[in-house]
Design a protein around this nucleic acid. Structure first.
Length: 363
DNA sequence: AAGAGAGGCAACCGCGAGCGC
DNA sequence: GGCGCTCGCGGTTGCCTCTCT
């Protein structure tokens, strides 16, 4: 008596999305805005279930998505927010509006978990040398309620600290956002490898660029440029800029540029409409190399601010503003919380000093 | 150069919450 | 209040790429 599937199992396409499908989806959302996902497959003719469409949009096609390596700052945010919120990736993602929950989840599972485990193992090893504590799992099982509460408090405190740092970092020019640009505050941290965005999709993006070019030429709608621009200029088609990101000088990037010329500001950014340093952060080179955002920012920068302002009140942004609103409200709240709490921080630190000291050097 | 294994990431699945009727 | 529908979230899977041997 299982729940019926969200869509018919037969006749529904699965697997990777093709550029053509992306275009169909994007153009549909351009017209109607995101939402009412149930209607998307039927109205577009896509052989995808509504869920798949929504996921594709939220995880890949949505404007303002940043791809590529996570910065040190983002990493810290994630680690601390995870300590605070647990595996509530959507909530965590709301504090990193340019990242999707899926991205953050994947990054946590593939990178940060291991990283922290290693560090913790190291700490356990050190503790073991004291001859008092056993393995992490067994010691954890022996944590008394009081200890558990203290650890929880510690986690919260750590998260607060991270947010404090993050907030102060946010106010600085986002050149600090790039681990390779700030050379660097944390000599202990490993140097990030040159950015390597998903080359699988890059080739697809290349195709999309071409397809879009043709699409705009062939489509009768292409004549209604102003309308198209007015809505689509808020797009940051993330994959366009990802074309051959590892080798920007190669020809493929030209297709994106060419496509852009054809599309004008079709894929202008950005959806982070409440973020005053959007243009900065978008123009920052993640990892000091060519990035999709960087490329987009370079190309679109002039238009973006104007369009951005003009479109803040547009319907499209209203539709897409949810994450940003979510971001804004809790962030303000957290700022307040942090500021209010900072006065009591000393007392808390005394209370939790030991545990904090244990973990502080993890980061 | 080729095969095997590991790692990374996009996409899928199932559950729960929210909303309207 | 109950029911059904839709959407969003978190866990998991499977494919693709990279690295090592």
């Amino acid at each position: 008596m299982g729940r019926p599937p969200c869509c018919e199992k037969t006749g529904v396409k699965k697997g990777p999305w093709t550029p053509e499908e992306d275009i169909i989806l994007v153009s549909y959302i351009q017209e109607h805005g995101p939402g009412n996902w149930r209607a998307v497959p039927t109205n577009t003719g896509l052989l995808r279930c509504s869920k798949s469409c929504r996921l594709r949009w939220t995880n890949y096609l949505r404007p303002g998505i940043k791809r590529g390596n996570f910065t040190e700052h983002e990493e810290k945010m994630i680690i601390h927010l995870q300590a605070l919120l647990g595996n509530r990736w959507a909530a965590i993602a709301s504090y990193l509006p340019q990242r999707t929950d899926n991205d953050i989840k994947n990054y946590w599972n593939t990178h940060l978990k291991k990283k922290l485990n290693k560090k913790l193992e190291g700490h356990d090893h050190e503790n073991n040398q004291d001859g008092k504590s056993s393995s992490s799992s067994s010691s954890q099982s022996k944590i008394s309620k009081g200890q558990w509460e203290r650890r929880l408090q510690t986690d919260i405190h750590m998260a607060k600290q991270a947010l404090c740092e993050a907030l102060s970092l946010d106010t600085t020019p986002s050149t600090g956002d790039s681990p390779n640009n700030n050379n660097n505050s944390s000599p202990n941290l490993p140097v990030q490898e040159p950015i390597q965005t998903c080359t699988t999709y890059a080739s697809s993006a290349d195709n999309i660029a071409k397809l879009l070019q043709n699409w705009m030429k062939n489509s009768p709608k292409s004549s209604s440029h102003s309308r198209s621009t007015s809505k689509m200029s808020s797009f940051n088609y993330p994959s366009i800029g990802a074309v051959s990101s590892s080798s920007p000088s190669e020809g493929t990037i030209n297709n994106a540029t060419i496509a852009h010329e054809g599309l004008d500001s079709l894929f202008n950014f950005n959806s982070s409409n409440n973020n005053s340093d959007v243009s900065q952060s978008m123009s920052v080179d993640e990892g000091g190399n060519f990035t999709p955002e960087n490329n987009n920012a370079a190309i679109f920068q002039v238009e973006s601010k104007q369009n951005f302002k003009a479109e803040i009140n547009g319907s499209f942004h209203q539709e897409e503003s949810k994450p940003n609103l979510e971001t804004q409200v809790p962030f303000t709240f957290l700022e307040k919380w942090l500021l209010d709490d900072n006065s009591n921080a000393q007392a808390q630190e005394e209370l939790m000093g030991m545990a904090l000291g244990e973990t502080a050097d993890l980061f």
